[in-house]
Amino acid sequence: MNKYLKSVLLMAATFSIVEAGTASAQDKLETAPTKFIEASGIKFSYRTLGKSTGTPLILLQHFTGTMDYWDPAVVNGLAKERPVIVFNNTGVGSTSGKTPDNVAQMSTDALAFINALGYKKVDLLGFSLGGFIAQELAAEHPDLIGKVILAGTSYQGGGDHLMQVLGEAFSQKDSPDPRLWLFFTHSPESQQAGREFIKRASARTQNRDPESGKDIADAQAKALIVWTNTNDPENKLLKSITQPVLIVQGSNDTMLGTESSVTMFKTLKNAQLVLFPDSNHGSIFQYHDTFVKTANDFLNQ
Rank of each mutant, 00 (worst) to 15 (best):
L5E: 11
K6F: 05
L9C: 07
F15E: 02
I17C: 11
A20N: 14
A23K: 15
A32T: 03
S40T: 04
G41N: 15
I42H: 06
K43R: 15
K43N: 15
T53N: 13
T53V: 10
I58K: 05
G65C: 06
T66L: 05
P72S: 07
A79E: 10
K80C: 08
K80S: 11
V86Q: 14
G97W: 13
K98R: 12
S107A: 14
S107R: 00
S107V: 00
A112Q: 08
V122R: 14
L124V: 01
L124K: 07
G126T: 07
F127H: 15
G131T: 05
I133M: 15
H141C: 03
L144V: 07
I145F: 04
S154K: 01
G158W: 07
Q172F: 02
P178M: 01
R179W: 01
L180K: 03
L180W: 02
F184E: 06
P188D: 08
E189Y: 07
K199L: 10
R208A: 08
A223M: 00
L224W: 04
W227M: 06
K236P: 02
K239D: 08
S251N: 01
L256T: 12
T263K: 15
N280H: 02
G282E: 02
T294K: 09
A295S: 04
Q301P: 01
